[in-house]
C-alpha cells in the first residue's frame, strides 16, 4: 500500500469547445503526501481539480483512485469516488444547506456512505467538530451564523467524516484573513499528520503552497510547465514562467524592472 499512489492522473485533457483548458496533465500522489497545483486564472488548475472530484468529465485521460480507474456517472461510480476523495472550495457557504444545522450537514455524507446508527453518527460528528476546533454551539448553528473561518472548518469536518484518502482543496484559504488563514493551515497540517490523508492543494499563492505541500506542479495555459519538490521549485525555478511568478511576489526592495524582464523572457514577442 505504501508504494502505490493513492491518486494517479495521466494525460488528462479537457476541451470546452475550441478552448483546451487542460492539456495533457499528469501527476501522482502517494498516501499521506501533499501536492500543490500552482497557477493563475486560465491555467486550468481549477478545471483539473473539478475533474478529480468528478464535477467535470475529462475529454480524455485517466484518473486512478487507489489503483482503479474512476469512470462513468453511475451512482456506484460516484459513490466510490466520493468515498475516496473529497473536495473543499474557496467559499464553503454555497455548499452548505442554508436551512440545515452545521452538525446535520456534517452527518450527511456519513449517512450516505457508512453503516451505523444515528447515535454513532452523532458521536462521530462531536468528534469531528472537536478535531477541527468548532464548539458544540457552532455545530448547532446555521451556516449563516458562522464566520468564514468557522465555515471552512465545518467544510473540512464534513469532508473528513467518511475518512477519505484524498482531500482536494481549491483555493481553500484564499478568502480568509491572514490570522484565520494561519489557523486553517495549522489545522490542515495537523490533520494530515494525524490521519495520513493526502492533499491536492490548488492555489495561486506560492507562499501558502510552500507551507502546505511537499511537491508541486506549476500550470500555465493548461499545461504543466514545471514540477518537483516545492522547496526546489522556489529556490531554483527552471521554467521562465515559474521565475516570473516568484519575482511577482512583493518583497521589500521589490524589483519591478526584473518582473518586466522575466515577462519578456517568457514572451519575446510582446
Amino acid at each position: 500500500m505504501t508504494s502505490e499512489p493513492v491518486l494517479a492522473v495521466s494525460s488528462l485533457v479537457k476541451r470546452f469547445g475550441d478552448v483546451t483548458a487542460v492539456d495533457g496533465v499528469g501527476f501522482e500522489l502517494m498516501p499521506g503526501a501533499s501536492l500543490g497545483i500552482v497557477g493563475e486564472s486560465g491555467s486550468g488548475k481549477t478545471t483539473t481539480a473539478r475533474i478529480l472530484a468528478g464535477l467535470d468529465a475529462p475529454t480524455s485521460g485517466t484518473v486512478l483512485l487507489d489503483g482503479e480507474p474512476v469512470t462513468g456517472r453511475s451512482r456506484r461510480a460516484r459513490l466510490r469516488r466520493a468515498r475516496l476523495l473529497q473536495m473543499i472550495f474557496q467559499d464553503p457557504y454555497g455548499s452548505f444547506d442554508p436551512r440545515q444545522s452545521i452538525a446535520a450537514s456534517i452527518a450527511e455524507p456519513m449517512r450516505l456512505h457508512l453503516p451505523g446508527t444515528a447515535a454513532d453518527r452523532r458521536a462521530r460528528v462531536a468528534e469531528l467538530l472537536d478535531q477541527v476546533g468548532l464548539s458544540e454551539r457552532a455545530g448547532a448553528s446555521l451556516p449563516r451564523d458562522l464566520s468564514g473561518g468557522q465555515r471552512q472548518r465545518a467544510a473540512i469536518a464534513r469532508a473528513l467524516g467518511i475518512r477519505p484518502r484524498v482531500l482536494v482543496l481549491d483555493e481553500a484559504v484564499a478568502a480568509l484573513d491572514v490570522s484565520i488563514q494561519a489557523q486553517i493551515l495549522t489545522l490542515l497540517d495537523g490533520l494530515r499528520r494525524d490521519t495520513g490523508i493526502a492533499y491536492v492543494f490548488v492555489s495561486h499563492d506560492l507562499a501558502v503552497v510552500r507551507h502546505i505541500t511537499d511537491t508541486a506542479v506549476v500550470m500555465r495555459h493548461g499545461r504543466i510547465v514545471e514540477r518537483g519538490d516545492t522547496e526546489r521549485i522556489l529556490r531554483e525555478p527552471r521554467h521562465p514562467y515559474t521565475r516570473l511568478l516568484l519575482d511577482s511576489i512583493p518583497v521589500p526592495g521589490w524589483d519591478l524592472d526584473r518582473v518586466a524582464r522575466d515577462r519578456r523572457a517568457l514572451d519575446p514577442s510582446s
Binding site: D177, V178, S179, I180, A182, L185, L206, A207, R210
Partner: peptide
C-alpha cells in the same frame, strides 16, 4: 503576530504561528 502568521516564499521555511480568535 500578523507577520508570524503569514507564510513566506523568502528565506528559510519557518513554521507559521496562528493568532487565536478572530479579527
Amino acid at each position: 503576530a500578523l507577520l508570524e502568521a503569514s507564510p513566506s516564499v523568502h528565506g528559510d521555511r519557518t513554521e507559521i504561528r496562528a493568532i487565536r480568535g478572530r479579527p
